[in-house]
Design a protein around this nucleic acid. Structure first.
Length: 225
DNA sequence: AGCCAGGCCTGCC
DNA sequence: GGCAGGCATGGC
């Protein structure tokens, strides 16, 4: 089990190289992106980020004070905009009260303190919380998502699809290292996206290489199990 | 045309 | 405590 987790990482790393994730220019942008990308393709989120930037709205207090209708129109391309406007404000208001908008203060707190607080926000689940903690604040916590579950299920090496169990598996078998956690999650997203694009008969699909190595069924790009 | 995307909450059971 | 159903846009 441990060998496989590590070998998959090195296979992907060798194929893709360094990803440099998360794609963003600031901590606040990462936080915004983490909320907007919930069940949404990143290309749609990019349009929103662009909207926000062109309106000079990547700013904690400006966003908090922005009226709901304006916020909704700016984040419309990401879908679920009524929900997400509310969720985004919940998150931003939390950070304003938690650190007064000074994100450096967050880095001095404990991972568990931040996580417990984030998970209490309506609109923040485990993946969103962990994405923010890992990518915005550089704490070592592994982010599990739909791709992670699907890939490792296909590779036949996850013992449970439960978020906590899967996360524990990575924590147990990888060294606790922010860089590796960031890159591994990004690599998983990359390989899953690539495979879906190139399905089903790309001979050089890296996922097929992985499937070959692990003698697992190759997945047909759907969400079947 | 229809399925899917880097979830999460609510309301039933 | 598990699980549909709802949320909504844009790309292929």
């Amino acid at each position: 089990m441990q060998d496989k987790i590590i070998q998959v990482y090195y296979l992907l790393e060798n194929y893709y190289g360094e990803t440099g994730w998360w794609p963003a220019e600031s901590i606040l942008e990462i936080i915004i992106g983490a909320v907007l990308t919930q069940n949404t393709s990143w290309s749609n989120v990019e349009k929103c980020i662009k909207n926000l930037k062109s309106n000079n709205m990547i700013d904690l207090h400006k966003l908090i004070n922005l009226d709901d209708e304006s916020l909704k129109s700016l984040i419309k391309p990401s879908g679920f905009y009524n929900l997400k406007a509310k969720r985004l404000k919940n998150v931003l208001i939390f950070f304003d009260s938690f650190c007064g908008g000074n994100f450096e203060i967050i880095r001095k707190k404990s991972l568990n303190d931040i996580r417990d607080n984030l998970l209490q926000i309506n609109g923040v689940g485990k993946e969103t919380a962990d994405s923010i903690i890992l990518y915005a604040f550089d704490f070592p916590i592994f982010v599990v998502d739909a791709y992670t579950k699907r890939l490792f299920k296909r590779l036949g090496i996850n013992f449970s699809e439960d978020y906590d169990n899967l996360q524990e598996m990575f924590h147990k078998y990888l060294e606790s290292n922010t860089y590796i956690y960031k890159e591994y999650h990004a690599l998983i997203v990359n390989v899953c996206k690539d495979f879906c694009k190139k399905k089903p008969n790309c001979e050089f699909c890296p996922l097929k290489i992985i499937c070959f190595y692990y003698n697992s069924q190759c997945w047909s790009g759907d969400r079947s199990r």
